[in-house]
């Protein structure tokens, strides 16, 4: 059942956009309004879409070459002078390769750097395992003081980028490569530490984030048609998590399923487990990458093969609510 409060913010979903594209457009738009915004990239501006900003504001765009460690610490230095640096590259390189630079140069001094990492998860597709970040959220969550956000569509991305640009502190924003349906319309408002309950039902709580939201939402709708009504929560704010919303829903359904395009270790599922095991022990099933490396293939083909596509989600929930 559709949550009556969300009617006004849902889009018709015929539009599609990649969240990286929404990022590129939004940051170029914000660059007009705020002259302190600077953008850095490591030779991937045409893929991360920072090229839109680069074209418009060549003086405030810095291509750092294929040198991610340097980029992160340079961004930190820029932030000390009052700039608002947005640093972009693929999520694999923006996290695993530079965890220490982010921790020591950005997070420890609490500097105002926004890491906008694109091409997260298996949904990268054909490039294969070396280019599919499945541990980025785990790494970023474990670093003190970093806000970790994972928008599910173009609208949410735009709102999150606006929010990050106007709120001080280190942010990790996880963006995706492929085109996905636009779930929210422009009335949607992003709030830090808040998720959105899109569907309501007593049988289970399904929580998803980022690329997986449009797939998990479809699974929840189809289950609802079959008489299995769920709470469906989109959770863009992974750190801080919307604890209130998860606790409220889990208290009612007593069964939680999480879905994410990430290793089941350390991501959204872990965050939900950490919360519930302390405050409301209920059964949690984590769906996502089962601690394996990715592979080449088409995004949907991979997600199916790794067992967290729409049908797998439906089957899992059916088996649990029986």
């Amino acid at each position: 059942m559709l949550n009556k409060d969300v009617q006004a913010i849902l889009s018709d979903e015929n539009k599609k956009a990649a969240t990286r594209t929404a990022y590129g457009e939004k940051i170029a738009e914000l660059g007009e309004l705020n002259k302190d915004i600077v953008v850095l990239d490591c030779d991937l501006s045409k893929s991360t879409m920072t090229s839109v900003f680069a074209k418009k504001f060549p003086d405030r765009f810095f291509d750092m070459g294929i040198a991610e460690a340097n980029m992160m610490s340079v961004a930190a230095g820029l932030a000390t002078t009052g700039k608002i640096p947005f640093a972009s590259t693929f999520a694999v390189f923006a996290t695993k390769r530079v965890a220490d630079q982010i921790s020591s140069s950005i997070a420890y001094p609490g500097l105002n750097v926004k890491i906008c990492a694109t091409h997260a998860g298996l949904s990268v597709g054909e490039d294969g395992a070396t280019h599919q970040a499945i541990e980025d959220v785990a790494i970023m969550r474990a670093i003190p003081g970093i806000t970790v956000l994972s928008p599910c569509d173009g609208t949410e991305t735009g709102k999150i980028i606006e929010y990050a640009a106007s709120h001080y502190g280190p942010y990790y924003i996880r963006l995706t490569r492929s085109n996905i349906p636009v779930i929210f319309n422009d009335n949607y408002k992003f709030e830090l530490g808040r998720g959105t309950k899109i569907l309501e039902g007593p049988k289970a709580t399904l929580v998803s984030t980022g690329f997986m939201t449009h797939i998990a939402l479809q699974a929840a709708r189809e289950l609802s048609d079959e008489g299995i009504e769920l709470d469906f929560i989109n959770m863009p704010s992974i750190k801080p998590l919307d604890e209130e919303l998860v606790l409220e829903s889990a208290g009612k359904t007593r069964l939680v399923v999480t879905v994410e395009d990430h290793n089941i270790i350390g991501g959204l599922g872990s965050a939900v487990c950490e919360l519930l095991s302390e405050k409301m022990p209920v059964k949690v099933i984590r769906m996502g990458v089962m601690d394996k490396f990715g592979a080449s293939g088409e995004p949907m083909e991979l997600i199916k093969a790794y067992g967290f596509d729409k049908e797998s989600i439906k089957d899992k929930i059916k088996s649990l609510v029986k």
Partner: peptide, 16 residues
């Protein structure tokens, strides 16, 4: 890492 941070500072100061 400090030299990189100094590079960022120098870039920021020059922009201003």
């Amino acid at each position: 890492q400090g030299l990189s941070a100094a590079v960022g500072m120098a870039m920021g100061l020059r922009l201003d």
